[in-house]
Design a protein around this nucleic acid. Structure first.
Lengths: 164, 164
DNA sequence: CTCAGTGCAAACCGTTTGCAGAACG
DNA sequence: CGTTCTGCAAACGGTTTGCACTGAG
């Protein structure tokens, strides 16, 4: 493992060491799996990545290690309303970003928006609110699915009235 | 029930009638409970509101009726990451709005943002994405909690590194 | 009358927890 | 060696589903 270790796994190890927490094979393997992917992983995806490896890693350990990764701030937890969580490491170029989520294929694209920061400060002013973090998600159809001819169902048959 | 029926309950009844679906006491009671509140209700809150009434209404019926209300577009489903869903009727003044969520007391404040619509069209242009709906949530401290002297925990003890 | 809706309880499913045994430091 | 972690399996909690019975149309 250490021979092919992703450099960011070292950051996680350092985090653990600084807190006197054991650096176990499982934790390294899980961190490796998360940091090797550039996507937004579900626990199931992480589990199946790991199943290829030598050791058998239980789901509980994955959840417990993800907690640590989130606490270390190296990984961010997302809930795109699929009924389960997804995890994304924060070591890419874009420190803070929003998400485009395709309703057809489920792909997630990241984008930056300075506008949202402006909204945050406006709202702070208008409502006396102290923002800590935000989440902007736009759901729709990604470029590829549009090219493939997919269309958004209009949901026409469901709304009998206009907002009165 | 019909004597004190909220006018919007009628809209729901109309929706059901147009589809040939039975208008039952339970459905009316649940709709009444949802439309009488101006907040973002959990199923549990709806259930306890209903418990005061005469009939005994099962949880399953509440879930099934909320499905109908959501399909009718009279009610919107939200997930603020609490582990359960919340439901808000869409018959207020603000047709499309965003949410400020207080991390201390859980209160939800609505606000309008034309900026987000601009972001949507920009993103459509830049990424070839066709937006259908979005969600902007800002988490932080509401005015009241700030006044009460609450402060956001800085999470200082958790992040050993800067985003490299 | 008939078909959909209701209540109950069991099933579901992602996630969490308790515990005996294994591993880190 | 003591403390923490791991794996397993059972528990959890919100939501969904199957089924016999009730009620709307």
């Amino acid at each position: 493992m250490s021979s092919t270790a992703h450099p960011f796994v070292r950051l996680f190890s350092r985090y653990l060491r600084e807190r006197g927490l054991p650096i176990t094979q499982q934790r390294e393997a899980i961190a490796q799996a998360v940091f090797s992917s550039s996507g937004h992983l579900s626990v199931e995806e992480i589990e199946s990545t790991l199943r290829g490896g030598s050791e058998r890693i239980g789901k509980a350990t994955i959840y417990r290690t993800l907690d640590l990764l989130v606490k270390s701030k190296l990984v961010e937890e997302h809930d795109f309303g699929e009924g389960f969580k997804r995890y994304e490491h924060r070591l890419s170029r874009q420190p803070v970003h929003e998400h485009l989520i395709c309703l057809e294929c489920g792909s997630v694209t990241e984008f930056r928006s300075e506008e949202v920061e402006k909204v945050e400060s406006r709202v702070a002013r208008e409502y006396g609110f102290e923002p800590s973090r935000h989440r902007l998600e736009i759901y729709g159809l990604c470029k590829d699915c549009r090219k493939a001819g997919v269309e958004l169902s209009t949901g026409g048959l469901s709304c009998p009235i206009e907002t009165v």
